[in-house]
Amino acid sequence: MIELRDIYKLYHMGDTVVRALDGINLNIDEGEFVAIVGQSGSGKSTCMNIIGCLDVPTSGTYRLNGIDVSTMDDDRLAVIRNRFLGFVFQQYNLIPKLKVVENVELPLLYSGMGSSERRRRALKALDRVGLSDKAGNRPSQLSGGQQQRVSIARALAGDPSVILADEPTGALDSHTGRDVINFLRELNDDGRTIVLITHDNSIALKAKRIVRLSDGRIVYDGDASSPQAVVTPQEED
């Protein structure tokens, strides 16, 4: 369902060109749980942004559910994000002045759903992450782990087929971080495609498949259980 073909993303910084993605070819099928790992600056977020239709590649083609999205304009990409993709960010990215439930409703709001149906679905998603009692609170009244669960509920609300999580545990302690990953696994068990970005090997090992990036290239793509997935000669931090 996700097909990246010869994806390049170049940034021009004065005279130098940063090759954030340097020829990526990647297929992710429905129902997979993929962890994208790599050192800081290896291009994970750039890759994720392109998969998430938040950014377009400099060259190459990206097909999502068979649709070529690499040349779409902003508004059409917005519709794709709204329909097919759910995001979980490292910094939760909840809107502080909206109530928890209103935050969860946002993707439904932009899909044009009526307000009562929106509320019903948002509460259902909150229930799914075990936070229906916090629906009326402000995000700031919740702990970090709870806020991350709200952002997962928000990602789930629109019932997308793919959930993209960029370092979702980065701001959490290891215990809550593990809970979040376990929850993502549950979602994967329900059939949702999960793409997880992490630089934490122990977290990556919870995925079924690991894609390792280095300097914008894929240096490993395979089973999480393979010893190669975790240790590569040039990487040990």
């Binding site: 998430g52 938040l54 902003d74 508004d75 917005a78 519709v79 994000r81 709204n82 329909r83 995001f87 990215n93 909840l94 809107i95 946002l106 993707p107 932009y110 899909s111 928000r154 629109g158």
Partner: peptide, 12 residues
Amino acid sequence: GIRKSLGAKKRD
């Protein structure tokens, strides 16, 4: 940015 990532169009 958050709103756009969740599907808000320009006109929204």
